[in-house]
Design a protein around this nucleic acid. Structure first.
Length: 522
DNA sequence: AAAAAAC
C-alpha cells in the first residue's frame, strides 16, 4: 500500500508537507508516488487505483501546490476544478484539499446543490483558488454569471467513469467546453471500463495512464473479505440484524438499491434498537449531511444508503459493508465494498442475493469472479453466521439495551402469537409488523411461534423440506412490507389487545423516531 | 433499470 517515499521526496511543497503531517499523513501511497510527478508537470493523466488508496491526494496535492494563493498574490478566480458525482463527496474532497493547502491559505470551495446560493456566491466574490463541484450547481452559477472558468489550468474528474456515463456526460462536456483549451485534464477512479477510456480520448491530450495496486480484480481492495449469501428476500432484514451483532463490527454501511428500501431498512433497524440513519437523494440536504456527520463521529454506527454513498466516502472506522440489495453493476459493487478496507485496514463485505438480485449478481460475478452465492435460506440456520462472521451464538444478548427490553416484551407475546395464529398467513402489513420482528431477534434457542405443533426436529430442516417459507410463520410478519396495505395488527389480533393498546405499546418501545439520532447529535 | 445531479 504505502510506499517509503515521503512527500518531500516527491517534490511536494514544504508547507503542504507540514500541513499533511498535521493531519497524520507522512508517507505517500503508490498512486501518489506514481501520479504526482506526472500531474505536477501538467500532463493529462488517467489514474486508477483501488478504493481507499489515496487517489484524492494523488490529484489533490499537485492542484494545491500549483495554485497561487492570495498571500502569494493570487487574483482569486478559480484556478483548479474538481468535479464529483455527489454532494457529500464534494464536501469531503474540499475538506481534504483545504487541509493540505491550509498553511498557504489556499481557499477551497465546495459548490453543490440542495443548499442556499448565498454562501457559495459570497465565497466566490471573496475569491477562491480551488473549486470542488457537482455539475448542476456549477453550471447554474456559471449561467448566473457568478463564476467563470477561464482561469482554470487543471480539471479533475473524480470518479471519472461515473462522471462520463450517460447521466452526467452532457453536463461534464459542457463544463469542459468552458475551460481554456490549454489546460490539464485528469481522470481518477478505482474502476475504468474500456469504453470510458475510449470515450475520454475526446478531451485528453497525450494522456499518461497510471495504475496502482494489483491488476487481477481492478479496484477491489484485497484486505476486504467478501461473502455472498443466497437468501430469501423476506429474510434479509433478520440476516442484517444478526450480522450487525458481529463482535468485531465497527461502523457499518448498508446499501439498498432503492430510496424506498433504504427508508424501510432504516426504519426496521431503528425499531430494533440499532443506531441507524438513512442517506439518499430524496432526503433534504441537511438530513443527508447530518446523517453522514453523525456516522463519521460514531454517534450512529449504521448508515443505510443508496448508491449516493457508494463512491468516494472515506471513513476509516467502517469495518463492514452489507449489500442488502445486490448492486446494479460490477463497478458499483467495487465502489460499495470499497467503503471498508481502506488505507490498509481490513474489512468485511456481505452481499445478499435473493431471487430478484440473481441476474444482477450473475453479471457482477462474471466480471469479478467472486463466487457462487452460498445458500442461506433462513435466519434459523444461524450457525453459518457465527462461523463466518464472528457473531456471538447468543447474539440477542449483545443487543443494545433498548433492544433487549423489547426482546423481553416481545417474547411475552410469543406463546400467544403461536397459539392464536395457527394456520394463518399474514402476507403484508404496515410498519407495526416490526413490533413482532423484535421478537425474532431473541436468542436462537427461544421458542419460535410458527403455528405448528412443537416437535423436536430442527426448524431449519422442516423449512428446507417444505421448500418454501412456512405458512403462518412469524417470519412472514417480520419481513412484510411496512408500507404495504394495512391489515389488522397480528399481535393485537392474536392477543385480543385493542388497537389503542397496541399503539401505546409501540410508543413505549420505540421512543425514538427514525433519523432522530442524527438530528440530535449535532 | 435505479440513483444521482440545479431550481
Amino acid at each position: 500500500m504505502s510506499t517509503t517515499s515521503t512527500f518531500a521526496d516527491l517534490g511536494v511543497r514544504p508547507e503542504t508537507v507540514a500541513a499533511l503531517s498535521e493531519i497524520g499523513i507522512t508517507h505517500a501511497f503508490a498512486i501518489q508516488e506514481y501520479a504526482l510527478p506526472i500531474a505536477q508537470r501538467g500532463a493529462d493523466l488517467i489514474g486508477q487505483a483501488p478504493t481507499g488508496t489515496g487517489k484524492t491526494f494523488g490529484f489533490g496535492l499537485p492542484l494545491v501546490d500549483r495554485v497561487v494563493s492570495p498571500e502569494e498574490g493570487g487574483h482569486g478566480a478559480p484556478q483548479a476544478l474538481v468535479v464529483v458525482p455527489t454532494r457529500e463527496l464534494g464536501l469531503q474532497v474540499a475538506k481534504d484539499l483545504a487541509a493540505a493547502g491550509k498553511l498557504r491559505g489556499v481557499r477551497v470551495l465546495p459548490i453543490y446543490g440542495g443548499v442556499a446560493y448565498e454562501p457559495q456566491i459570497d465565497a466566490l466574490k471573496k475569491g477562491v483558488e480551488i473549486l470542488v463541484a457537482t455539475p448542476g450547481r456549477l453550471l447554474d452559477l456559471i449561467k448566473q454569471k457568478h463564476l467563470k472558468l477561464n482561469s482554470v489550468f487543471a480539471i479533475v474528474l473524480d470518479e471519472a467513469d461515473r462522471m462520463l456515463d450517460l447521466g452526467f456526460l452532457e453536463d461534464v462536456e459542457k463544463i469542459l467546453s468552458m475551460l481554456p483549451e490549454q489546460r490539464q485534464t485528469m481522470l481518477f477512479s478505482a474502476t475504468m471500463p474500456d469504453a470510458i477510456v475510449a470515450l475520454s480520448r475526446r478531451f485528453l491530450h497525450s494522456p499518461i495512464t497510471v495504475h496502482a495496486g494489483h491488476s487481477e480484480e481492478p479496484g477491489v481492495s484485497p484486505q476486504t473479505k467478501q461473502f455472498v449469501y443466497r437468501t430469501h428476500s423476506l429474510n434479509k432484514l433478520e440476516m442484517l440484524a444478526r450480522i450487525l451483532q458481529a463482535k468485531d463490527r465497527g461502523l457499518t454501511m448498508v446499501f439498498s438499491r432503492t430510496k424506498r428500501n433504504c427508508d424501510r431498512v432504516t426504519e426496521d433497524l431503528d425499531f430494533r434498537g440499532f443506531a441507524a440513519a438513512a442517506v439518499h437523494g430524496d432526503l433534504n440536504q441537511g438530513a443527508r449531511e447530518r446523517a453522514l456527520r453523525a456516522f463519521r463521529a460514531g454517534k450512529i454506527d449504521v448508515l443505510v444508503a443508496t448508491d449516493v454513498a457508494a463512491r468516494g466516502i472515506d471513513i476509516a472506522a467502517v469495518t463492514h459493508v452489507i449489500n442488502f440489495d445486490c448492486p446494479e453493476d460490477p463497478e458499483t459493487y467495487v465502489h460499495r465494498i470499497g467503503r471498508t478496507g481502506r488505507a490498509g485496514a481490513t474489512g468485511v463485505a456481505v452481499t445478499f442475493v435473493d431471487w430478484e438480485d440473481m441476474p444482477r449478481w450473475r453479471i457482477i460475478d462474471k466480471t469479478l469472479e467472486i463466487g457462487e452465492p452460498e445458500p442461506r435460506e433462513t435466519y434459523h440456520t444461524s450457525e453459518w453466521l457465527y462461523s463466518d462472521l464472528d457473531i456471538p451464538a447468543d447474539a440477542a444478548a449483545t443487543l443494545p439495551s433498548a433492544q433487549r427490553s423489547r426482546v423481553g416484551l416481545a417474547a411475552e407475546k410469543e406463546e400467544d402469537l403461536g397459539g392464536g395464529r395457527r394456520g394463518q398467513r399474514p402476507v403484508r402489513g404496515r410498519s407495526r409488523r416490526s413490533a413482532t420482528g423484535t421478537r425474532d431477534a431473541a436468542p436462537v434457542d427461544a421458542p419460535v411461534a410458527d403455528g405448528e405443533p412443537a416437535d423436536h426436529e430442527p426448524r431449519q430442516r422442516r423449512r428446507r423440506r417444505n421448500g418454501e417459507v412456512v405458512k403462518g410463520d412469524a417470519t412472514q410478519i417480520l419481513f412484510s412490507d411496512p408500507s404495504g396495505p394495512s391489515v389488522p395488527d397480528p399481535v393485537a389480533a392474536a392477543t385480543g389487545a385493542a388497537d389503542g393498546q397496541a399503539k401505546a405499546r409501540r410508543r413505549r418501545r420505540s421512543p425514538r423516531k427514525p433519523g432522530s439520532a442524527a438530528t440530535t447529535t449535532d
